[in-house]
Design a binder for these strands. Sequence first.
DNA 1: GCGTGTGAACCTCTTCACAGCG
DNA 2: CGCTGTGAAGAGGTTCACACGC
Lengths: 207, 207
Amino acid sequence: MSGRKVSERTIRRISHYARCLRTSRANGDRTVTSSWLSGQCGISSAAVRKDLTIFGEFGKQGSGYDVDDLLVQIENILGTCDSPSIIIIGAGNIGRALLKSGLEGTGGYTYSAIFDIDPDLVGTKCAGLTVKSMDDIHNTVSGFKKFIAVIAVTMGEGQKVVDRLNEAGCRSMLSFNLEPLKLPEGVEIRYIEVSTELDMLTHSLEK
Amino acid sequence: MSGRKVSERTIRRISHYARCLRTSRANGDRTVTSSWLSGQCGISSAAVRKDLTIFGEFGKQGSGYDVDDLLVQIENILGTCDSPSIIIIGAGNIGRALLKSGLEGTGGYTYSAIFDIDPDLVGTKCAGLTVKSMDDIHNTVSGFKKFIAVIAVTMGEGQKVVDRLNEAGCRSMLSFNLEPLKLPEGVEIRYIEVSTELDMLTHSLEK
DNA sequence: GCGTGTGAACCTCTTCACAGCG
DNA sequence: CGCTGTGAAGAGGTTCACACGC
């Protein structure tokens, strides 16, 4: 498809709507309104409608949005109708914890493999998966239509891992490592930084 | 202090500057320029200067910013000159992994205690700390000037924990739980949602 | 010359308010 | 009547360009 011009914030909210819709579906609701969604997500109802109308007219005047229908539409927008495989790089504390926690209740993701550089860890088991050597990355991902790599390695090893992932054709990464990572054009990376969130909370304690 | 009118985004960037400054200090650099910082953070140099001048004039024309001085100023802004204690609620996979990983290289935070509801886990050791009962929260936090609670409990238990934290006077929380949490006015919460980040990455794979 | 601090232009995102449809 | 979809207004954030100080 062609390059989207939709803001990151809109996509983040759409992901949030998806989560709300899954719970309302679990509750047996058939329709939701923009103001109900707005209440769940802490934003204005106009914002919800604006977000959704970027991609189409999914609502029905007077009643609202059909839960099942809207969820299908949103999963098409996000691409989670055909979820990418998730691989974890780094079988340390965080990597193993993520794997054990799983991804239940999300957009259909599952962890498909876990890798580590440390030869002592390779071959060990975790949550039903065997930790693979970094040398196996290419082979493993060649079986995936699309995939995302979650990076959770020892501080300082991040760039090395990114380079290996690039060689393997990885175009999408989620890093738990704090270090800034350099990547080629066209490769997307996002960071999860606990310490940044703590900084923001610390700042708000000051007021 | 009085209510700040500074945007969340600015604070997030300031936190990022702090991290950059710590590494340049470690490299022995005495000064940095706004364009160097902007390069590290992937934004424009004007934005860096705008962010900083909200709080004061820390730079010197012609040379830039003194690393040590700016870092002190930023830690004052964030409040990390006197970092809050961090407690973890939930000694499951994520909670224990966070504790074991520690918070080295961040704004001086340390994990001070870990709690769990599960009586089987209470009393067990993790990274030098003994898992405490939720009943001990009040006692423990009464010894802290300020603190932040990191929530990483079983899905569905989040609200219960938040309520206990509120009773204990907690004003600042970081949740790894996906569930939406209700809290009283004046209590700040932030979420770390792996599945949302994955959704955003999945979307960007579509283009 | 170099790099900061800053008003002004620019752009993006959010909110408002209402027409229109079921 | 209820709720969506949407132009218009408003708010907020970012970039530009340049005066000023080192």
